[in-house]
Amino acid sequence: MTLDTIDRCVAVLVGAMCAAAVVTGLGMRGDAGVFPVIAGTLGVLACAGIVLGTLRRRIPDELPPPLAWQRFTVWCLCVLGLLGLMIMAGTFVALPLFLLVSLRWLGHLRWPAALAIAVAFSAVIYGVFVYLLSVPLPAGWLAG
């Protein structure tokens, strides 16, 4: 997909959301809806401008920088896994596991190096946030 096509898709999507904000704002009681209407209208106008701009543009269209979809998917899964595990199994189960997996698969480090970094960095996080700052990080099953 070229940048112009992406711009048009983004403009349609965001424009629809801004239009929804305008409609909702118009239905609000008192002057609570004034600002949503102004902000939404500005968004709709900007989206219209972007769409018109892409249709009228004379300079050649460009492609966005290539995205490594496989790495992107793996990384997103790692991040989702981190958040899910943090809540369920506890922060200090999730952190070393996330680091180990991402350093091994994305950073291509050897297992011992990845393990050493994962443990050391988790210890730093424990020291700074739990020991020094007394932040009650999610403990998950560990607390149970």
Partner: peptide, 21 residues
């Protein structure tokens, strides 16, 4: 402008400071 407009719409989220809506 679009980026700023999205920011302004996001700034509307929450309880209204005047009416509590």
């Amino acid at each position: 402008v679009l980026s700023a407009a999205v920011g302004l719409v996001l700034a509307c989220v929450g309880l209204d400071a005047f009416t509590g809506m």
